[in-house]
Design a protein around this nucleic acid. Structure first.
Lengths: 210, 210
DNA sequence: GCGTGTGAACTCATTCACAGCT
DNA sequence: AGCTGTGAATGAGTTCACACGC
């Protein structure tokens, strides 16, 4: 009976986190799984089970302490632990939206590069970051010690970009193209082991082997 | 042994569709589940099983006819046979990206309104559509016979907006806020029964009861 | 009484493995 | 030989239901 944590549980943690934040602002001290259930549309049993994987945080007859639970989940999600250097590859609508999303900074992600194939875009700035030529990917990643790459490019090029990123020494890839990236020619990528929610988007963080 | 189709199968259909489109452009006539498997990182058994739910489309020893399979999946995802009137609520980064995404038109979605709370945004235009005051939501939805609402607003207001949309007679809600919207005070919403992928974003289409 | 924590039951989703068609 | 279609087996994720603590 050992605890293997479902991917879906991790995804839901961030949903809980957001709502606990709201609850805190509303001044609630305790919240029961049933009340959370009604607020979020997730079953109460589900919520208890999700938390169960990580320990015992509730008080019988009272529920969960909003502040503490929030802290616990933040720690579980590893938010604010370190700062991460990030590159965004592909500056279409999605890439632009991501690049100008302030939430990244708050969560410890620092965007140090935006890359695109389109020469017309190269040189422009988004949110203070210059758009650079994708051909320089390798040097940029290496020189700026970028450890996370966000792929917001079309499916057709996603795998190639992923390979290039891995060769440049990247550690994690957040892939928005709807394919599961896979290893090719000896390059070793581990697929999806974490997902999170930011502004209603589902992030799938697939990190390479250490 | 009757066929109850997994939600995840439906999600994957759109992934297959995109790739079939690429394959067609590459000039491929037939594709086997194994080849698709390698291109997409989904197991071959999975692909055969997914298609199995809907019928027999393959030829033993040959694979699937790219063109036909594409048509079949398009029909299966069918929803987009008609034109739908759409409103986008919340014109932040995400809302903006959606409003200017051309793929909608191709798929039969016609954006007839963009709404926001921010008075500064009201009056501007995105992709030809004027941003209007969210307070007029009801009249706008009713007058323009809008049947789909896309919520790209923060979680905190998502449920309120959803309720308002339902009162205005909307039929479907595509919700980008990471909560499962639920019925309140007699308003009847059915949750998520379809999801699709567009430009790497996951759409969850939750449609109300007819 | 209320509400957690949790084994056990169940439902949903994926993979195995192979008979049968081309 | 190559590849589909599919029952059966396995695995993942969710819900039930209730003993126990506040």
């Amino acid at each position: 009976m050992n605890k293997k944590i479902p991917k879906s549980t991790v995804t839901r943690l961030s949903i809980y986190l957001r709502d606990l934040d709201n609850l805190e602002k509303e001044g609630a001290r305790y919240v029961s799984s049933l009340e959370l259930s009604r607020r979020l549309g997730v079953s109460d049993a589900q919520i208890r089970r999700d938390l169960w994987y990580f320990g015992q945080f509730g008080r019988s007859g009272m529920g969960y302490h909003v502040g503490s639970l929030k802290d616990i989940i933040m720690k579980l999600l590893g938010i604010n632990q370190k700062r991460w250097h990030v590159a965004i590859i592909g500056v279409g609508n999605l890439g632009k939206a991501l690049a100008s999303y302030k939430g990244f900074a708050e969560r410890g992600f620092e965007i140090l590069a935006c890359l695109d194939v389109d020469k017309n875009k190269v040189g422009r700035r988004i949110n203070g970051v210059k758009i650079e030529d994708i051909n320089n990917l390798r040097q940029i990643i290496e020189k700026r010690k970028i450890k996370i790459g966000i792929i917001a490019a079309p499916v057709s090029s996603a795998q190639t970009i992923a390979d290039e990123l891995v060769k440049s020494g990247i550690r994690s890839i957040i892939n928005f193209a709807p394919i599961k990236l896979h290893a090719q020619k000896g390059v070793d990528i581990r697929n999806v082991d974490l997902s999170m929610e930011l502004e209603g988007l589902s992030f799938y963080l697939s990190r390479s082997n250490a």
